[in-house]
Design a protein around this nucleic acid. Structure first.
Lengths: 130, 130
DNA sequence: TCCTTATTGATAATGATTGTCAACATCATC
DNA sequence: GATGATGTTGACAATCATTATCAATAAGGA
């Protein structure tokens, strides 16, 4: 049976305070800075659990590390991500869902899923340096 | 100055024979099986060059390794990828391009780029096992 | 052919992630 | 509240893809 531990709670709430995709290492550092003595492996395990249960989204950065972000569960959505600061906004895309299904069917593919993320510079990061 | 070596040619042509995304390690094994004594680091370097010059596309697998695929240069496109055998088809998506720009603009984001890939089971892999 | 220097390849180094396992903590049950 | 079975933790080792190092090699202009 699944047990509730303060470690899992800590990881979940730490992730909730982030408005950007963060790595397991970053989250571990943040938790250590908060005075908790949580272990690195535990952070990895907790994040994997959250991702599997749909309470967090994950993606692979171009550098190859896994990044996580708390998300609204039970709802399919995509992300608009700032290349510079990581700020992330959830977006919906009914049109894209339908397009993906159509393209898959046209090529004989079944059971389509898709990865759709938009990267750009957020309003703040678009401002010229003073 | 950039020099032409048989190693770079070998990597390029080996990639051209693949109709699926492959890892640097896989390509290195294939090249070794062909009798060439090419080094692993060289394969990594050649693939990075091909990706940078637009002659190959790359993406991160969910396991975190980088996968490469030869592509038609100079043209923006996306991929329809078989989850099972890796078969990859290039697809175009003008509607999605426009949607990405619109969503970015609506949220104050500039310089939008996007990652759009569709995963499914290809016609062959969709057939039930005999 | 000669010479400069980009490239190669064997190997070490890096860094994220996962496996191991004894000590510990949770929670159903008494 | 005490007990016990077992899920969980955390320090550390192990793994694995990728990158850095650097002496030896080879491309291509002179």
């Amino acid at each position: 049976m699944k047990r509730n531990t303060w470690q899992r709670e800590a990881v979940k709430s730490a992730l909730d305070t982030q408005d950007a995709f963060v790595s397991a290492q970053q989250l571990h550092s943040a938790l250590r800075d908060d005075g908790t003595g949580i272990g690195l492996a535990t952070v990895y395990r907790a994040l994997a659990d959250l991702a599997e249960s749909g309470q967090a989204d994950s993606l692979q950065s171009t550098e190859g590390e896994a990044l996580y972000r708390a998300c609204t569960p039970g709802q399919h959505h995509h992300h608009l991500i700032c290349r510079n600061c990581g700020l992330t906004v959830e977006i919906e895309a009914d049109a894209v869902e339908q397009w993906a299904r159509k393209v898959a069917a046209e090529n004989g593919f079944t059971q389509p899923e898709h990865v759709v993320d938009v990267f750009g510079l957020c309003a703040d990061c678009s401002k010229p340096a003073p």
